[in-house]
Design a protein around this nucleic acid. Structure first.
Lengths: 334, 334
DNA sequence: TTGTATGCGTTATCAT
DNA sequence: ATGATAACGCATACAA
C-alpha cells in the first residue's frame, strides 16, 4: 500500500480511501491511485485489515467427513450462503475425530473467526465450551446435543424415523429391519426413537434383532448390516436404512442374495442425496431440506454475530417423505 | 497477550517466548504465564502472527463443485495432507463458474495464501496470471491447461481412455458408446482422445454417433446421454462413461429400457469413486490414484514455496483398470 | 533471563 | 480534499 502511495504520489490515507471507495477524493488523485494499483498488482491485505478493524469476516464450518456426500453437500450449501453474505468460510474436516475437532476449533479461534457452524463429531459439548468462553457465536447443525445451551438447526429426526416406518407399514409390512449409524450424536438416536415409536404405535413386530446399529456410516456398513438382517431366520420384508449411503450398501447385499427390490425386499433411505434418484430402482427416502437448513443456520449465526450473548434459538425443520421405486407391498406375509 | 502479560506480571516478550516454546525462560515465569493463559482463555492471534511474520500458513484449494463426490474427495485428500503439514486449507467451491473462480482467487490473494492448488474451471489461464504476477506458487490439479507454464499434477487421461476401450474390445465389443462431460477442461478432451486412439488402433466401429458430449458432469447428464445412445438405430453393446457419476446415470437409463447390465449392455466408469463398489452390479472403472495425486500436489507446492520462481514441475500419474461386474462379453454381435 | 522498542499493512482519528 | 499518526497483536532485534 505504501508502494502504491509512492507510485501515485499521495499518502496512504488517500490510497485507503480510494480502495475502499469512501469518496472524498478528487477525480485526479483517484485515477492516479487506481493506475498505481493496477500497475503494482496491489491487493489489500485482509490480514492487516482484520487486525486493524478487529473483524476477520471469517466463519468456520466443521463437518465430520467431507468425502461423505451428505456432509460435502452440507459444507457446500453453507459455504455458498456465507460467500453470498460476504463471509469467507473455513471448511474443516474433522473426520469423526474428537481430537481433530478440538484442533480445528483451536485453529479457528486463532484465526479469529466471527462465528462457527458445526456438525459435531463430539460425544459431548466439551469442545464447545472454549468457544462459549470466547464469546464466539455457534450454531449446532444437523447433529445436535440436547444438554447444551446453544443455537441449533436441525430436522425433526424423530418424525423422520416415524414417517419412514409409517410408509412401510401402510404398504403392508409388519417386519421391518432398521439400520442405524453410530448413535453418539443424538441425531441418530432420535431417528431410531422415531422408528421405535412407530413400531409400537402400529403394533408391528418389534423383534430387537431387527435393529442393527453399525459402527460407521459408510457403504460397507450398510452392506454388512443388510447381509445380517437378510440372513436372519425370519428376515424382514422391508429395511429402513437411516442413511442413503447405507441404503446403497443394503442394495448391494440384497443383490448378492438374489433378492429383488422392491419385489422381494422394500428398501428406504434417509437424506435424499442426489444419487438416490439414480439408483436402480430409485430409492424411496426421507428428505431433509438441506438448502433451507443451511440458509437458516447462516441466518441465525449472522443474527447472533450482531448482538452479544443472545438467548439461543432453536430451529427445527420437518422432513419430507419421498416415495420412489424401492418400496412396494410385501409379496410374502410373515 | 498484553492482558496475559499483566496477569502474569511479565512483559509481552516473555509471554511470546513461552507461547512459542522458544525456551530461555525461567520455570517460575513460565508457569505464571501458562496459568494466565489458561485463566484468560488466551489464544494467540494468527492474524497478528501472519502480519508480523509475513507468513500466513494458508493454502488455497479450488475445486469446481464441492458437492460432486469426485471433487469433495479431492478437496478432502489435499486438505488432510496440508493439515498434517501444518497448513490451513482454504477450500473454495467455484461451482464451475469462471467469475466465481476469479473472485476466490482475489480473496486468496488478499488472505495472503502462500500457495494454491487448483482444479480449475477456467477455459484458459487468464485467472492464473494474476497469481503468477504475485509470485504465488500454484499447482494445477486434475484439470490441466497445456498452454500454461506451471506446476501440474494429473493422471494420464489419454492412457485411461485408451485402457477403458481396450478392456471392452478384449471382451469382444466392437460398437462402443462413449459419454464425456464438457470438454473445455483439457482433461476430458484427452480422455476422449485416448478412446479415439483405441478405437482406431483396434479398428472397431468409429461411428461419430457413438460419442456424446454432455453439458454437465452430473447424474442426469449420464442418464440423458445413455438414453440417447441406447435408442440409436444400432445401439452400442457397451458404453464407456468417462466419469463414474455419469455411469450411474447410464445404469438408470439402461434399467428404464429393460436392459440388463452386463448381459445386455456392458458399462464402464472412470474415477473409481467409493460408490462404484456398491452399485448393482459393481462398476468396472478406470481408477485414478487420488491419494497419491493429492500427496504429490502438496509435496510439489511445499517444495516450490521454499524457493523463488523454480522451473515448473509436471507429475503425470497412471490410471489403473478396475474390473468389476458391469462388463462382460456381448451377447449379440453387431 | 528478562524487558524495551520497532515494524508488519491496514483503519481511523485528527489536523491541515 | 489530503496527510500525518496512533492503534491493532504479535515477532524480533537489541538492550539491560
Amino acid at each position: 500500500m505504501l508502494e502504491v502511495a509512492k507510485e501515485a504520489g499521495v499518502s496512504i490515507a488517500t490510497v485507503s480511501r480510494v480502495v475502499n471507495g469512501e469518496g472524498g477524493v478528487s477525480k485526479t488523485l483517484e485515477n492516479r491511485v487506481r493506475r498505481a494499483v493496477k500497475k503494482l498488482h496491489y491487493h489489500p491485505s485482509s490480514v492487516a485489515q482484520s487486525l486493524a478493524k478487529q473483524r476477520s469476516m471469517l466463519v468456520g464450518i466443521l463437518v465430520p467427513l467431507l468425502e461423505h456426500p451428505y456432509y460435502s453437500r452440507i459444507a457446500s450449501v453453507i459455504e455458498r450462503r456465507l460467500f453470498d453474505c460476504g463471509y469467507q468460510a473455513l471448511i474443516c474436516n474433522t473426520e469423526e475425530d474428537e481430537d481433530r475437532e478440538r484442533a480445528y476449533i483451536e485453529m479457528l479461534l486463532r484465526q479469529r473467526v466471527e462465528g462457527i457452524i458445526i456438525d459435531s463429531s463430539a460425544r459431548n459439548s466439551k469442545n464447545l465450551t472454549e468457544l462459549h468462553e470466547n464469546h464466539i457465536p455457534i450454531v449446532l447443525f444437523d447433529r445436535v446435543l440436547s444438554d447444551v445451551q446453544c443455537n441449533q438447526v436441525f430436522c425433526d429426526n424423530s418424525q423422520g424415523g416415524f414417517s419412514g416406518i409409517q410408509h412401510l407399514v401402510e404398504l403392508g409390512h409388519r417386519r421391518i429391519g432398521v439400520i442405524a449409524a453410530p448413535s453418539y450424536p443424538e441425531t441418530l438416536q432420535r431417528r431410531i426413537r422415531g422408528t421405535r415409536e412407530a413400531v409400537e404405535f402400529f403394533g408391528i413386530d418389534d423383534d430387537p434383532e431387527l435393529l442393527v446399529v453399525g459402527d460407521t456410516q459408510l457403504f460397507d456398513m450398510g452392506y454388512e448390516a443388510g447381509l445380517h438382517l437378510l440372513r436372519l431366520p425370519v428376515p424382514p420384508t422391508a429395511i429402513f436404512a437411516l442413511t442413503d449411503v447405507t441404503a446403497i450398501g443394503v442394495m448391494h447385499a440384497a443383490a448378492e442374495m438374489n433378492l429383488r427390490i422392491p419385489d422381494d425386499l422394500s428398501l428406504m433411505g434417509y437424506d435424499d442425496l442426489p444419487f438416490a434418484s439414480y439408483t436402480v430402482p430409485q430409492l424411496t427416502t426421507v428428505a431433509q431440506p438441506l438448502d433451507q437448513m443451511g440458509a437458516t443456520a447462516v441466518e441465525v449465526l449472522l443474527d447472533q454475530m450482531g448482538k452479544q450473548d443472545q438467548p439461543p434459538v432453536k430451529a427445527v425443520l420437518t422432513t419430507k417423505l419421498v416415495v420412489r421405486g424401492s418400496t412396494a407391498p410385501p409379496k410374502r406375509q410373515t
